[in-house]
Design a protein around this nucleic acid. Structure first.
Lengths: 200, 200, 200, 200
DNA sequence: CTATAACCGAGACGGTACGTCCAGTCTTGCG
DNA sequence: CGCAAGACTGGACGTACCGTCTCGGTTATAG
């Protein structure tokens, strides 16, 4: 058993995941985690430097942002709305878990980048497919970078969550899709110079 | 001296402000605040219910997001870029202060809304002026809601800060202004139905 | 309440005293002490550097070695036996309390000396009185230094406790009094040069 | 290599011996012992039930109280002083090692008895020889039980060590030999009933 | 000459205690 | 009364240690 037992990793990560959702970051104690995982604190601190690092690891490993795949509704607007609502759901579902991290994310930029890298891959593919379909249908005059679209969508959702809490209601979705995403996609497709991807 | 001495308010708010920038929310203790303000903890707790409330008050009162006023560059694009860079600067300057709040903001939504309400008033006026100038110059075919523009800009900046740290470099500004803000403003001005303001 | 509240001192010392007697030094935890004294650990550690120091203080303040006064039995032998049995009782009664200290006592000789100084004063007076009575009765031909007598008695009792545990049975007392103390006292009284007091 | 390797025994016992002298019983951890002996904790616990048992074994095997044999000085007083100083030296030399045991000795009386049984055999023979020589020379009118003499000497030395630290100076030795041991030996030799050996 | 069995070093594990630090409350004494 | 100073409870944090356990590797005797 010389190497750290991966089964303990899992038990601890699971317990942390549960507690994060139940009581939130601040009111979750390491002793609680240990007790629920039937582990000892030493076992936890042998793996992670502290509570924040543990939670970040939970995010990186468990947080697959498993948004619903994004259906094919037959229209660009419908597809975008589907994706967007999925993103809202995912963020809303995990928000307790995400919250306490911001400070750590900023103080530890490397972890932040790791988190960013692990997070949205799946949805990005969905967005790409969605845009391709729209081009194929003739709804868009040219190709659009899926990354830019997703970055803006993500920015809107996070901004909403940070400033007003996870109130992802219908007006918000409508305004985001009709007021921001659709105009942007149309403009980008019409232009021939929209190559930059540096927004997010 | 029966009423609470306003000079103490100021000393405490100043000390809190400084410490927030220096060490962040989590690692700032109330004892530190008291010591630096040459105040007693009782004096602090007589005024605020707790550490989160104090910090939110600091934000509401001190955090005027004192971005540079936004110059008149003669073009819509230049004006937008000026405002956007100012926003970046403000957020970057205060990011240590802002960061540690996210958890509090989410767990205490009322305070979050208060904060939101107090925060961007000044820049909003600048944005409004900027857009009016553009309409007057004929750069825009119709009026545009300044709130929507500002909300999107804000979302982009925060998203950037949260996920990659405050790396507000030139490519980011260019892509944000040219790739997102300009197309959006143009689209909104062209339409006649852009009234909703519910993005942020 | 700027100075440390003496009432807390007492509560903590009392709790420590009780627990020492109930469970012994090793199995007594500082958390237990805090809980029983309705105190916080911070309050304890503000006063004492650690568990050993606290216990040593308990000894110095509470441990008055309150042996029974030593009755006047009418004979030197009876008086000596009375005193000796009282000493046995005292040591036996407190032995749980005394035990865990030896290591601390040696590593901190100053505390050891303090302890030594505070411990046996009362019995020493009894011994003196006892010897005076014996001289007055003519049982002893001359005066005897009470300190020397008490030191030897103490040495015998501690030696017994350390090596065989507190088995202060009748044979031990008999041998100590008849075999050691009585011959010594007689010899000292007979001599005219027995003034040194440096045994203990 | 089916039987437990005696070389490991020795390495562990040596390491324990060293650490006991260096840091004392309480602050010596089993991990330290294992590390210094280049052994595994399992190897230690395969041989001894726990830290106290290991240390007691160290005492029993290594602690031969290797006092200098006690020279023949030609006089009873000189011989006694020689033995006594040897005892002082031995105790002083090992005091760090001995100290931390008292608590264990008391809480585990069986081990204490074992230790007691193994400890003083050698010196006891010396004392016996010394007394026989004195009788042969006519310095003593009758035989004296060596065990009683040694027990009292031991008690004096330990008492000194426990209460004032190992300050085994010349006055202490003089007072012990001339003031206690000599008078006692004389008294016992003169009596015809001094058979009890129950002091220690 | 393999195979079985015990030893061994290394070190992770659960549990428990330690000593530190912090939030929020309460007390004392001064102005 | 407000204020500064600071002690107080409660409880979480991260470290250290004990005694148990499991892992491979190595060595000795048995077949």
């Amino acid at each position: 058993m010389a190497p750290l037992d991966p089964a303990r990793d899992r038990a601890i990560l699971d317990a942390t995941m549960e507690l994060l959702s139940e009581v939130g970051y601040d009111r979750m104690s390491v002793d609680q985690i240990a007790k629920r995982a039937r582990a000892s604190k030493a076992t936890i601190y042998r793996r992670w430097a502290g509570k924040p690092e543990l939670v970040v690891d939970v995010i990186c490993r468990r947080f697959d942002m498993d948004a619903p795949p994004g259906e094919d509704t037959g229209t660009l607007r419908g597809d975008l709305a589907s994706i967007f609502r999925g993103l809202c759901e995912a963020v809303e579902r995990k928000h307790t878990l995400i919250i306490g991290l911001s400070s750590t994310l900023v103080s530890n930029q490397e972890l932040a980048r790791t988190l960013r890298a692990h997070m949205p891959t799946r949805n990005l593919g969905d967005v790409r497919a969605l845009l391709d379909r729209a081009v194929a249908r003739g709804e868009l005059p040219g190709p659009v970078d899926a990354g830019r679209v997703f970055a803006v969508a993500e920015a809107l959702v996070w901004h909403r969550m940070i400033f007003t809490g996870p109130a992802f209601d219908e007006p918000f979705a409508a305004e985001s899709v009709d007021g921001v995403l659709m105009p942007l996609v149309s403009a980008w497709a019409a232009s021939t110079v929209g190559q930059a991807t540096d927004v997010g």
